[in-house]
């Protein structure tokens, strides 16, 4: 699914990466625990999170995650927006809760995969 579709499905506001919305993602990962993101994400995903600090962007950068959605209407600080721009990331916010944001994306066709198999 293209990030431009995600913007539409989540009625999201774009804070960084306006010129990269053509990016295709295979799946999504909804998590507030960055340790879990590092332990489970395998493929190209969009990260949905309610956590807002530089570690989110740093974790995403290390995991080659190029698009982040902050849920529950959280507004990123100018510092975070700048880090995202410097790292070439797409930063979105949506007023939907984590549950509804994930549900809407799933319903729109963004399904599972993207994480390693959990035994």
């Amino acid at each position: 699914m293209k990030v431009s579709e995600i913007v539409e499905v989540l009625s999201a506001r774009v804070y960084a990466g306006e010129d990269q919305l053509d990016l295709d993602v295979q799946s999504a990962c909804g998590a507030d625990l960055m340790s879990d993101v590092m332990a489970f994400v395998k493929e190209s995903v969009v990260l949905l999170t309610g956590l807002m600090n530089p570690q989110v962007l740093r974790t995403a950068d290390l995991m080659d995650i190029k698009a982040i959605v902050f849920v529950r209407g959280k507004v990123p600080s100018s510092d975070l927006v700048q880090i995202a721009k410097d790292s070439g990331m797409i930063l979105l916010t949506t007023k939907y809760s984590m549950f509804l944001a994930c549900g809407r994306l799933y319903e729109a066709g963004l399904h599972g995969g993207g994480i390693r198999e959990i035994a």
């Binding site: 960055m34 340790s35 332990a39």
Partner: peptide, 15 residues
Amino acid sequence: NMGFGAGMGLPNMKR
């Protein structure tokens, strides 16, 4: 609260 301390660090390093 910062998103760490999930107890996945060393296992993830091993993996």
